[in-house]
């Protein structure tokens, strides 16, 4: 008597055989105790596999977002969702910056060139053991006021020997600046509020982004709605005096802000790759929670590699 091979019984149990094949197998099973025993073993193996795979399933109930919302989203945006939205905006902004640079040689550009040539272009700094955080109290005066239009950019620090914090046995970081003079205009659109560190911590549920070891110059928040955490911009200063800004918020808002900044400051403004921060669950119209993806990114007149290294040092208090 020909017995049924394992794989055929698997296919039988998976209902992957034709009706005639099933009939053939069932006739054989009726007369063959050995194949019946094998079928039972394989059914048990199949059930165990299903149970094991069930253990590695998402824990929350998966509810698809409304299809209409999916349909309303253009493909290009969906392809670039999260990082891509950001990258597209960034690319467009950089291109616009280049175009502006080649077409217009206005005063701002002249100032920018002069400021770049005024200092040595590249400096290195090394992360040293953890210092006392200087996050609080912060300076809350407007940086815009400190750098009035037309005035040469202010320098906040001349001491280039300030040590940055390390993390355990992390390797030293080589931070390279593109330009060295400060551009300290904070010309973000919208209603922004400069707040003390502790207030920012309260508003953001203790999620104010900070690069460990760099003194915090200013924290600005934009409360977009009563139910979600605000958009946050934390400005810090590296030992060479460059301002570094960490922007944290909903991915769309961060992308927009980055685009605006690069459009205004030109291509010398670098931006790190974004990193995801804690998402939020906001009530949707139908009452079900909707997940809002949030990211943080670091901006400054530094090489992108340096900004990415700084991003690795981000802590969310």
């Amino acid at each position: 008597m020909r017995h049924i091979p394992d794989e055929e019984l698997h296919a039988y149990l998976d209902q992957a055989l034709s009706r005639s094949q099933c009939v053939e197998i069932e006739c054989h099973l009726a007369d063959c105790p050995r194949c019946r025993a094998l079928r039972d073993d394989l059914a048990s193996l199949r059930d165990r596999t299903t149970a094991l795979l069930g253990l590695v399933s998402p824990q929350r109930v998966t509810v698809p977002p409304p299809f209409s919302a999916l349909r309303a989203r253009p493909l290009a945006r969906s392809r670039w969702k999260i990082y891509g939205t950001y990258a597209a905006a960034l690319t467009a902004a950089v291109l616009a910056g280049f175009a502006g640079h080649s077409i217009l040689d206005d005063k701002a550009m002249t100032d920018a060139k002069r400021s770049v040539s005024a200092d040595p272009p590249i400096e290195s700094l090394v992360f040293a053991p953890e210092p006392v955080p200087t996050a609080s109290p912060i300076r809350t005066q407007s940086l815009q006021a400190a750098s009035p239009a037309g005035a040469s950019p202010a320098r906040l620090a001349d001491d280039r020997s300030i040590a940055l914090p390390g993390r355990g046995d992390a390797p030293p970081l080589d931070i390279r600046s593109i330009g060295s003079e400060l551009e300290i205009e904070l010309d973000f659109g919208g209603l922004w509020e400069t707040v003390p560190w502790e207030e920012a911590a309260a508003l953001t549920e203790n999620l104010v982004p900070r690069i460990a070891g760099l003194p915090v110059v200013e924290v600005r928040v934009q409360q977009r709605s009563a139910t979600e955490r605000p958009l946050v911009v934390v400005t810090q200063q590296d030992p060479n005096g460059n301002l570094v800004r960490t922007i944290e918020g909903p991915v769309g808002a961060v992308a927009l802000l980055v685009t605006q900044q690069i459009s205004r400051h030109g291509p010398s403004w670098g931006t790190s790759e974004p990193t995801r921060t804690r998402p939020e669950y906001l009530p949707a119209e139908d009452g079900s929670p909707r997940r809002s993806i949030r990211v943080a990114t670091v901006m400054g007149r530094l090489a992108v590699d340096s900004l990415n290294l700084l991003r690795e040092r981000l802590t969310l208090r």
Partner: peptide, 21 residues
């Protein structure tokens, strides 16, 4: 997707992208 990326949020993001495509 979850069994490949081991991140629920990311799995949902990718799943939505699949259907948009």
């Amino acid at each position: 997707l979850y069994r490949k990326v081991w991140d629920e949020d990311r799995a949902e993001d990718l799943a939505q992208e699949v259907f948009i495509r």
